[in-house]
Design a binder for these strands. Sequence first.
DNA 1: TAGGCCATCTGGTCCT
DNA 2: AGGACCAGATGGCCTA
Length: 307
Amino acid sequence: MMRESQFGATFTRQEDVRTLNSADLKETEDDNTDREEEEREEDENGLPKKKGARKKKFSDGHNDRVKVRRQEANARERSRMHGLNDALESLRKVVPCYSKTQKLSKIETLRLAKNYIWALSETLSAGKRPDLLAFVQTLCKGLSQPTTNLVAGCLQLNARNFLTDHNGDVSFSGRPQYDSLYPYPNAEMATPTGLSSGTRDGVKPFRPYNYYASYESYYDSASPESGSPHFDGQMSPPINYNGIFSLKKHEDQVEYSKNCHYGMRYCNVPGRGSMYRVSPDSHFPYDLHPRSQSFQSQDELNTGFHN
DNA sequence: TAGGCCATCTGGTCCT
DNA sequence: AGGACCAGATGGCCTA
């Protein structure tokens, strides 16, 4: 069954030129090849009309060569597309949201990359430290809601979202992530190595939440009086390392780069020699890979933000 | 089940 | 002539 094309102009042409799948190919390829030089004339409706069965016969050897060339072209095309996908995968790893299990689609990856470049350019041209919310808004422009949620979720990664268990593994605490941006009144700040009682025992049930809408409402409501969130003077513009934003000082970024050439999932926990990982039974929806250094920086971020 | 995303096949066009 | 690139068609898989 022919799928209706959304482009009417090409549809009429495609009615006559049926695209063949691999199964069809075997049956009709020889026939199509034979018609290659068939002469045509127009009928009373101006449509091409077959003049007659003047098929040019090709040898089996020629037909075989045609088949082989087509197969080779298919292989090249596959290889080309794989190269394209590899490049896209590389791009996924450097845009501000990388998850191995919940991959961004191709189009969303390109959109996010474009926004990221734009946001960084704006930061550079402004010559001052960016407002995180404005940065996030730029980042999420034109993205689908799920992708916006994913990006927002990535940006809200917080040290207190991860608990170190007795094995040294790191699991998600289950605390709603929007707490990091919208703390409950009197919420305590957690330390990198532990949580206050209010976070672990008082876990609030996760509920659907529109991150982007919350960003917007917060941002829109910000006034000079209330003050949009600012970071303290030690913060740098948000820099992405394999999907995790960092506001750490530059020397720490350099240090991180030296230690983590292959991305955060290969970073060792200081003093333990094992890797951080998100517990499989965690409630965190993405298999993000927190790096040890991010613990302090994320708290710095939140401290600065909350203040 | 519909819709989104993806891989693959395919023929057309352009370039070397 | 042959390869690269492109876009349309198609079917499979997954998810809401």
